[in-house]
Amino acid sequence: MRRVMASKLISIVTPCYNEEENVRELVARIREVFAQLPNYDYEHILIDNASTDGTANVLRQLAGEDSRTKVILNTRNFGHIRSPYHAILQARGDAVIHLVADLQDPPEMIPDFLAKWSEGFKVVLGVKTQSQESPAMYAIRKLYYDLSGRLSEVRLIKNYTGFGLYDHVVVEQLRQIDDPYPYFRGLIADLGYEAALIPFNQPVRKRGITSNNFYKLYDIAMLGITNHSKIPLRMATMAGFFLSAASLFIALGYLIAKLLFWSQFALGTAPILIGFFFFMSVQLFFIGIIGEYVGAIHTQVQKRPHVIEKERLNF
Rank of each mutant, 00 (worst) to 15 (best):
Y215F: 10
V13C: 08
V171D: 02
D179P: 03
I30M: 03
T210S: 15
F276P: 01
S263C: 00
L248E: 03
V301I: 15
F241I: 15
V124A: 06
A63E: 09
D53G: 04
L233W: 09
P232D: 01
G120V: 12
N314S: 07
F242R: 10
L174C: 06
L73K: 03
A246M: 13
D94L: 01
M235C: 13
L99M: 14
P15T: 03
G79K: 08
E43T: 09
A251R: 03
S148M: 10
K230C: 02
N77G: 08
I256Y: 14
E133L: 07
P15R: 05
N159P: 00
N57L: 14
G120P: 13
Y145V: 00
F200L: 02
D179E: 15
Q283T: 14
K206N: 06
Y215I: 06
K116F: 12
L59Y: 05
P106D: 10
T14C: 06
N212G: 11
I274L: 15
F163I: 04
A239G: 00
V123R: 05
Y144A: 07
R205H: 05
W262K: 07
A257R: 14
I10K: 03
A6R: 15
K122T: 00
L143Y: 10
F265T: 04
F249M: 14
V124S: 04
D219I: 00
P135T: 01
K70P: 12
Y215Q: 13
V123I: 12
Y215T: 11
S118T: 12
A221M: 14
L252P: 01
G240K: 11
V282M: 15
A266L: 08
A63D: 11
P107V: 10
Q132T: 04
F242V: 15
K158G: 10
I289G: 04
L313F: 13
S211N: 11
D179V: 09
S281R: 13
A296Y: 14
D41N: 13
L59N: 06
V27K: 05
G192Q: 07
L9G: 01
I256V: 15
L125H: 00
A236H: 12
L243M: 13
E20R: 12
F265V: 06
D105Y: 06
M238E: 14
M5W: 04
R175T: 07
S211M: 03
L99D: 02
Y85T: 12
T210E: 05
L151E: 07
N201L: 12
V33F: 01
Y160W: 15
V307Y: 11
R304P: 00
Q130E: 15
R76V: 11
I30A: 02
G291V: 09
L223N: 14
L191P: 10
V23R: 01
D53I: 07
V13Y: 02
L260G: 00
V58T: 08
F279K: 08
L9F: 01
P107N: 12
E153H: 12
E172T: 11
V204L: 15
M109H: 12
A28L: 06
G120Q: 04
V33P: 03
